[in-house]
């Protein structure tokens, strides 16, 4: 598995896309800091970007890589290698190279700007951690979609639709249902609703750091326990890990049974 991981990783490093991705984040970081002159404000803007763009790029990259390296995968399958290690290796190669571009691309400008002397360092590291998680999750979801769809166009379509759904439509439905059922106690429902969407989950995680004063304005005991203590932080992280583990398990399950 490690050998395949290494191969995928170097393959991606050699390709232009990793550099484009890296350069994009580098530029974003530099421009944000240049325009804002304020680390903590830049962190807020960055949060919006990470929550929208990282899943999108992870999804598209994952699907693209799978379809592109399909012939090579078929070649590997002819060799005496375990299927799980082939697909896991490929997945980790993509996810890790994307995460690296993200961390380096955003980290470098912030470090040059004096992140280590700033109080925003925890907010910023949390941002990078959630960004990495989102990359892992959405690449895994993309691999799932690609494995289930032989047709490239269909695969891409589903991938984009998934991003659109989790990024925007889900929140719309969520908001509507909260308003429709406003006569009922909703605090548990709203927390569960957040847990079921990785994008919402990472947003909540960052909100816990940035907007805690507003979140504590609501008078629900469940909310208060969730946001007021480290309970919320722990649960959110556990859920993020689960969101990585389950799609991965499905990749392995699918790959084992798939007829190539």
């Amino acid at each position: 598995m490690l050998k395949i991981l290494k191969y995928s990783f170097y393959d991606l490093m050699r390709s232009r896309w990793s550099y484009v991705y890296f350069a994009f984040y580098l530029l974003l970081g530099v421009v944000l800091l240049f325009l804002n002159n304020d680390l903590s404000k830049a962190v807020i803007t960055l949060m919006n970007v990470i929550i929208v763009l990282v899943p999108l790029i992870g999804t598209i990259f994952g699907v693209m890589y799978y379809y592109n390296s399909k012939e090579f995968t078929e070649l590997l399958l002819a060799q005496p290698i375990k299927r799980s290690s082939i697909f896991l290796g490929q997945y980790l190669g993509v996810a890790l190279s994307l995460s690296m571009s993200l961390i380096l691309g955003l980290g470098l400008p912030f470090i040059f700007y004096g992140l280590f002397k700033s109080t925003a360092i925890w907010d910023f590291s949390l941002l990078l951690i959630t960004g990495t998680f989102l990359t892992l999750i959405f690449t895994a979801l993309a691999f799932n979609i690609a494995l289930s769809n032989e047709n490239k166009i269909k695969g891409f379509g589903y991938a984009i639709l998934m991003w659109l759904f989790l990024g925007i439509i889900y929140d719309g439905i969520f908001l509507m249902s909260l308003i429709i059922f406003e006569d009922y106690p909703l605090d548990k429902l709203s927390l569960i609703g957040t847990m079921l969407n990785p994008i919402d989950l990472s947003r909540t995680l960052i909100l816990l750091k940035l907007d805690i004063s507003a979140l504590l304005g609501y008078t629900g005991a469940v909310f208060k326990q969730f946001f007021g203590t480290s309970f919320g932080l722990i649960i959110s992280f556990v859920m993020l890990v689960l969101w990585v583990v389950f799609p991965l398990l499905r990749i392995l399950y699918k790959a084992k049974r798939k007829d190539f």
Partner: peptide
């Protein structure tokens, strides 16, 4: 609907 505070800063 105070519970909707959980959607703060969402793209939607």
């Amino acid at each position: 609907t105070p519970e909707t505070i959980i959607l703060l800063r969402s793209l939607f």
